[in-house]
Simulated scan of single mutants.
Amino acid sequence: MHHLTVIGGGLAGLTAAITAAEAGARVTLYEAHHTLGGRARTADGPYRTNNGPHTLHGGGPHWTWLRHRGLTGPLAPAGPRETARLRLHHRGVLRRTPPLALLRLVRRDARQAPVDADFLSWASAQTGEEGARAAAHFSAVTLFHHDPGALSAAFVQERLRRAARLPTEARHPRGGWANVVDRMAARAWNLGVRVETLARVDALPDRHGPVVVATSLDSARRLLGDGSLTWTGGRTALVDLALRTRRGDPCALSDLDAPGRFDRPTARDRTLAPAGEQLVQGQIPIAPHESRGDGAARAEHLLDLGFEGWRERVTWRRDAVALGRTGAVDPPGTTWRDRPALDRGAGVYLAGDQVAAPGMLSEVSFNSALEAVALAFGIRDRLDLKRA
């Protein structure tokens, strides 16, 4: 039996560990934190906030893989009511319907965007600059980037189409993402995976088999001493609020005049906050020169528009800045194939959301984990990656 060492206990590390154990390998997983989950952790206490907005997309491979193993658990309902309560900030006012130009860009028969052009230039030629900017800003819900229009047109178009698809692809585990992590961890333990928490790894351990480094790209660069492990990401101001419940609040508020969005997860899952209160989670992408305060100011302006009297209703608040939360974003002229390669030589492989694997958001972590295990053990014929 082969032995695999996994460094990092987030979604990528757990997926790699489970996949290898299912294939018959002995697996040891090291996690520096006292709990597993990485960015998919959910806060304890009365306000069950994820570490930033989290969504499973039913059109992606990660969803199929989790469902096949019974790891998704109960899901919060998402239906026409939630879509009907979406508000869009456009031209300084709140609207119920998106601009026609945005709808043109997400149609199935819309022209395929090129890799080499930036999204704003390409989309402006299709629908005009105002509509192109609105579409770019709407796509920020899946990009967490301060200037989506400057990214590869093909990259943004794919994510824009999936974000705007009806019925929605979004799937939300009831009780927060920690419940999915707990189920993944239980499956790993049942398969015999040895899990070591509070085990920070500062150098590659002595080993008798391959290693999957399933950490952030910054951590992987330091661990492996490889300065080439870099890729473009983003910075996002996160604003989490608990508000006393008021009828009429939107389920989601998306900014089309600038990148940013607020969601009210308790609209679909009442278990996330105490009775009489609701959670509102926002993400406002900020440029490299902007501060957390700049992001918070834009967030508060958006709240003023969409959540009447929110300042008097606040019972709890948390502000933070997330670095690289977007995972990988592809500048013009690049695709996922140009990101850092999974195979680093000498039996070392990468997995995570900024490496050379396809997908959107956490799907990149999942796909890279499966591919890393397939490369490590030469078991591609036993892993149906497309079907997974």
Rank of each mutant, 00 (worst) to 15 (best):
L36N: 00
L86V: 15
E31Q: 13
L29A: 09
T28Y: 02
G38I: 13
A40R: 01
T42R: 00
P80D: 14
P61M: 07
L103T: 15
T28L: 01
R91S: 11
R26T: 13
G70A: 09
R81H: 13
E31M: 05
A43T: 10
T64G: 02
A84W: 06
H57L: 14
R69F: 04
T64W: 04
L88R: 03
H90A: 06
L86F: 05
R69A: 07
L100I: 12
R85A: 13
P74Y: 05
E82I: 15
E82C: 00
Y30P: 03
T28C: 01
G58R: 14
L103E: 14
H89R: 15
Y30T: 06
P61Y: 05
P77L: 03
L56E: 03
P46H: 05
N50Y: 04
W63D: 07
R87L: 07
A78V: 13
A76Q: 03
R95P: 02
L75D: 05
T72P: 00
T55S: 08
R91C: 10
H33K: 04
G73W: 07
A84D: 14
P74V: 08
T28W: 02
L66A: 05
G60I: 08
G73A: 01
P61R: 14
P53W: 05
R48I: 09
R95L: 03
P77H: 02
A101F: 07
H68K: 14
G52N: 09
G37C: 08
N50D: 15
T35C: 01
H33F: 05
L94K: 05
G52D: 07
L66K: 00
L71E: 06
P77E: 03
H89Q: 12
T49E: 07
L86K: 06
H62K: 07
R41H: 09
G79P: 07
G52K: 06
H54Y: 05
T64C: 00
R69H: 11
L103R: 10
L36H: 01
T72V: 15
P98T: 15
T72G: 02
R26S: 10
H57W: 06
T97I: 09
H34Y: 02
P53E: 08
E82H: 14
G45V: 14
G58E: 11
A76F: 04
G92H: 11
T72K: 00
R48K: 09
R39C: 12
L29S: 06
P80E: 12
A101K: 00
P53S: 12
E31A: 06
P98L: 14
E82G: 08
H62P: 00
N50K: 02
T55Y: 05
G73P: 05
V93F: 00
H89W: 15
H33L: 01
L88S: 02
R91M: 07
L29T: 08
L66W: 05
L29M: 11
H33R: 14
G52F: 05
G60E: 15
V27L: 00
R87P: 01
L29W: 01
L88A: 12
A76G: 01
H89G: 12
H33V: 00
T72Q: 04
A43L: 13
A101V: 04
